[in-house]
Design a protein around this nucleic acid. Structure first.
Length: 188
DNA sequence: TATGAGATCAACT
DNA sequence: GTTGATCTCATAC
């Protein structure tokens, strides 16, 4: 059982909270998604806001694909494209709870602290070894493997991180109380 | 604990 | 030339 393209062919704001608690594996390595953020084309903070460019082209394509981009020149960030073709919306995967391939992830990251392996978009991609060459890959086929969460998740909502435009929008979602969040959520 | 620089690339002004 | 959906390491309180 895995998440299909239909799952992603809905509003990002519907899809995003449902992905909390889902399992993300890349090349057999990964864990449970505990934090992500939603970006919509009408959102000034979204890469797609100003229209199509070679970098963000995947966001303008069909849902259910991976959009990977380079951040601040050195980090890679993983997004899942949502909604229908042309709407250019996506969720940024910000943190997962490492479950499978701990040894490999520790080696790639050069760290022993489990909580720091995947808590942040750049860290996550380093641990899973995701980079620009994976931009545009389908999410319902190897090396990706996505499974829906098995139980109801306790979700917290907050404002997004590291942006200056539309910074007040409460489009950051997280698993309540998880020690693997890139940063804690406020309350309210 | 807290701020600051550096890494380094694509898009924008 | 500057900025950004970032992280790490160094230096300063």
């Amino acid at each position: 059982m895995s998440l299909t393209r239909d799952f992603f062919a809905r509003s990002v704001h519907e899809v995003a909270p449902e992905l909390i608690g889902a399992t993300l594996l890349f090349d057999g390595i990964g864990g449970e998604i505990v934090e992500l953020e939603a970006y919509h084309q009408t959102d000034p903070a979204a890469h797609s806001y100003r229209g199509l460019t070679p970098r963000n082209a995947v966001m303008f394509g069909p849902p259910g694909f991976a959009y990977v981009y380079r951040s601040y020149g050195i980090h890679w960030c993983l997004n899942f494209v949502c909604e229908r073709e042309g709407s250019a919306s996506a969720v940024l995967i910000r943190a997962i709870r490492p479950l499978i391939g701990l040894k490999v992830m520790r080696r790639r990251r050069g760290l022993s602290d489990e909580r720091l392996l995947c808590s942040g978009p750049g860290r996550l991609c380093q641990a899973l070894k995701i980079d620009g060459s994976h931009n545009g890959l389908a999410l319902d086929a190897p090396p990706f493997e996505l499974s829906p969460r098995s139980a109801v998740a306790d979700i917290v909502v907050g404002v997004r991180i590291g942006i200056t435009k539309a910074a007040e929008k409460p489009w950051r979602y997280g698993l309540a109380g998880s020690p693997f969040l890139s940063r804690p959520f406020g309350h309210a």
